[in-house]
Amino acid sequence: MKQVKQTVKAKFLILVTLTSAACVTSTVQDARTSVTGINEGESVVIMAKSYHLGNETEAKYIRCIEDNLARGRRGLRVIPHAEFVDSLFPWFEPRTAPAETKNLAKLMARPGVADKIAEHGIRYIIWLDGDTERVAGGGSLSCAAGPGGGGCFGFAWWQKDADYDAAVWDLQGLESAGTVSTDVSGTSFMPALVIPLPFIARTQAKACKTLADQLHSFIVQDETI
């Protein structure tokens, strides 16, 4: 029994190794326009730039950034974006959300807005723009099954690009603190000789981890810098 368990475990490890062996390249960069920092009790909120403006940032990517920023002992306090949008209705709907920092003063002057933002302790709004797209693919893979069994034969590949920009707005000074961007490209392969072996590039997950780590560093930067 123990040997069976070890065999299953070994097969699982091989599969994990194979599926994580696909090719992924990433770059991340930031451009700072003001000094940042965050105090105890202050929080951030992650928002997607409006789809009225053509943006298609995925909801699951926003949740991933939220989770990664909040994770760990040094995690930030993150207000879930849905809760934030509901509590400030209708001023952060896709139609009404401010597109530029110069609109923030007018927004904060609206009844109840400044109080609600203070209640949440929000110091930074992070606006995400971008998406993950399949940009290329090829190969041929076919599968068949019969009375004697089945199997697949062939080779397929595809490439995905994940490009995301994050604009950081500082609500303390009602100004832009800067931008952080990441560009990840991943190529996945799936050769099949009876059994298909997926080598999956986790492009979006990599773009999430990369951007969240950089955003964390960007925000908690020592204010003396």
Partner: peptide, 8 residues
Amino acid sequence: TIPAPLLE
């Protein structure tokens, strides 16, 4: 359900 809006 429409959230209670911030308005007068």
